[in-house]
Computed example of a mutant assay.
Amino acid sequence: MSSLLLSFALLLVALPAFAIYKCESGGNISYSDLPCADTSSNSKSGRIIIPPAPSDTHAAQEKLVQDKRRLQALETQRSKEEASAAKERQKIAKEQERKKKRCATLEQRTRWAKEDAASANVKRMARAQRKAQRAAEKQQLECGP
């Protein structure tokens, strides 16, 4: 019995959500939850929506305000996350640029050390070759093959 009463009460609360169609045909007016079937020139039809009760309107307005606040909070959070991601991308790009510049410098030093080793006299050749080898190892360690 109570479940029947509860379902009836829920149905009454949900009634404002249904559309009601007003159909006029031959001077007779009828109301239906389905669109009018007769669309001849002498008949009129229209859709009527029953407005919700004032308490439902207030609750809907409160829900709208809460939804707007949640939306604003989500938009603020998203913009902060986007700004953070952009900052992180800039940081990574700067780091890559620094590494690229460092590798170019190491490559130049390796090339110079090899040139010095090639043009060194017999007395200094071993030292120059060792210096060139170390420069090449350092470049390979920091920049890869």
Rank of each mutant, 00 (worst) to 15 (best):
E62P: 03
V122I: 12
V122F: 08
E81I: 10
A135P: 00
A117W: 03
A135N: 02
A83Y: 06
K44E: 05
E97Q: 08
P16H: 00
P54D: 04
C103S: 09
R127P: 00
E75L: 15
F8T: 09
L4W: 13
C143V: 01
G27H: 02
D67S: 15
Q61T: 09
Y21R: 06
P51H: 01
L141T: 10
K44M: 11
E95R: 01
D33G: 12
A19E: 02
P145H: 11
Q90F: 12
L12D: 07
Q77R: 12
L11I: 04
Y21H: 11
S30A: 07
S30E: 00
K123H: 11
P35G: 02
A17C: 04
R127F: 00
Y21C: 06
I20L: 07
Q133E: 10
R98Q: 05
T76L: 13
K63Y: 08
K22N: 11
D116T: 14
A93M: 12
I92M: 03
K99H: 12
A86V: 08
K100G: 08
A120H: 00
I49L: 11
C23M: 02
T105W: 13
S55I: 06
P16R: 00
K68P: 05
S30N: 03
S55Q: 09
E24G: 14
K68H: 07
C143G: 01
A83M: 04
E115T: 15
A120R: 00
S45D: 00
A73D: 09
P35Q: 10
A132T: 03
S41W: 08
P51D: 02
Q139N: 10
V122T: 12
L15P: 02
I49K: 14
M1N: 03
L34Q: 11
I50Q: 15
D38P: 01
T110F: 03
T57Q: 05
N28R: 15
R70P: 03
A132L: 01
H58L: 15
V13H: 05
A85I: 00
F8Q: 05
S40L: 10
N28A: 12
W112I: 11
K101M: 11
I92K: 08
A37E: 06
S7H: 07
E115Y: 08
S45A: 04
K100W: 04
L6W: 04
E107W: 10
K91W: 00
E115I: 11
A136C: 06
R47W: 01
K87Q: 03
R70H: 14
R69L: 11
L10E: 08
Q139F: 13
C36Y: 03
K22M: 07
R111S: 10
R70L: 10
Q90K: 15
R47S: 03
C143R: 00
A60Y: 14
D33P: 07
A83H: 04
S79L: 09
E82V: 14
A128I: 01
K123P: 03
K63L: 08
I49C: 06
E75R: 15
K63I: 05
A9D: 12
R134V: 12
S41N: 09
V13G: 11
L5C: 12
G27I: 01
S79G: 08
